[in-house]
Amino acid sequence: MSIDNGQLTALLATSQTLSSINRGERWCDLFFRGLLWALGCLGFLLPAAIVGYLVIGGGSTLTWKFISDFPKGVPLGSTGGILPAIQGSLSLAVLGLCIATPLAFGGGIYLAEFARHSRFSQIIRFVIECLVAVPSIIYGLFGYAFLVVFFKFGISLLAGGVTLAMIMFPIMVIAVQESLQRVDDSYREAALALGVTTTYLVQRVLLPRAWPGIVAGMVLAVGHAVGSAAPVLFTASVYFTKGSPKLADPVMTLPTHLYHLVSEAISQEQAFGTALVLVLGFLIFNSSALMLRKLGSFSWR
């Protein structure tokens, strides 16, 4: 194709106007990038600052003895370790997960695959979203009134585990439902066209595909539930326990222990150490969940 002179001049003229438009756009882009970079850094700096502060304050407290010993001293907790609190928090997390996971999978799968686009499913979804927004102290109060008093569970690991499960449940249902719905419809088409049932489709195709999203949701749910003191304050925790956690007995937990240490001004160092253990615990938990995520989805994608 040949271009004569007239066309060439016209072409140059347009390219010049284009570049002058681009100059303004380029500055705007540069500014926007800079702004986003700064905000992105904030997202890193904030947690880093918190962890750094905890390490400075509690790093020296954090010894093997601290995590393997019982609280000691007068007032109790001013020296010694936090072993029962670690055990209590762990067993609450496990119990809560064991109760919430099967229920949430059932609910999420039902909403995403068996009641798709139905009015009923939209209503349930709305209610569950409301549940997520309910403050954890309300769960604590409900757990106390309903489980501890009405069902006579007493202040116990069981009551606390069930309360935590109630907090985890809505978050996990939404995670399961959303992750399943994000799986492209072409998978459903291809599978159902082979004459299989929805159950078979969910088991063999949709759940493996949705697995990473589901794990992410479960981590979020556990972090949210186990990290907060409010739900276990009235339902499961006491100031001090001896021996390993039992279902019918109350337990110590990390967040409530931290709360006691600070609110009653028992020991600043012990409080920092406890906080550090809590944060490091979540770090370990999150990274193992990340590994589980990779493991579950293998290299299928």
Binding site: D184, S186, Y187, E189, A190, A191, L192, A193, L194, G195, V196, T197, R204, V205, P208, R209, S297, F298, W300, R301
Partner: peptide, 27 residues
Amino acid sequence: RLVRKRIGMVQQKPVAFPMSIKENVLF
């Protein structure tokens, strides 16, 4: 389901199920 099994259909967009080649065939 029986109709879908007997009247096979191949879609426009090829889809790999999250499993091995062999298990895909046997799905």
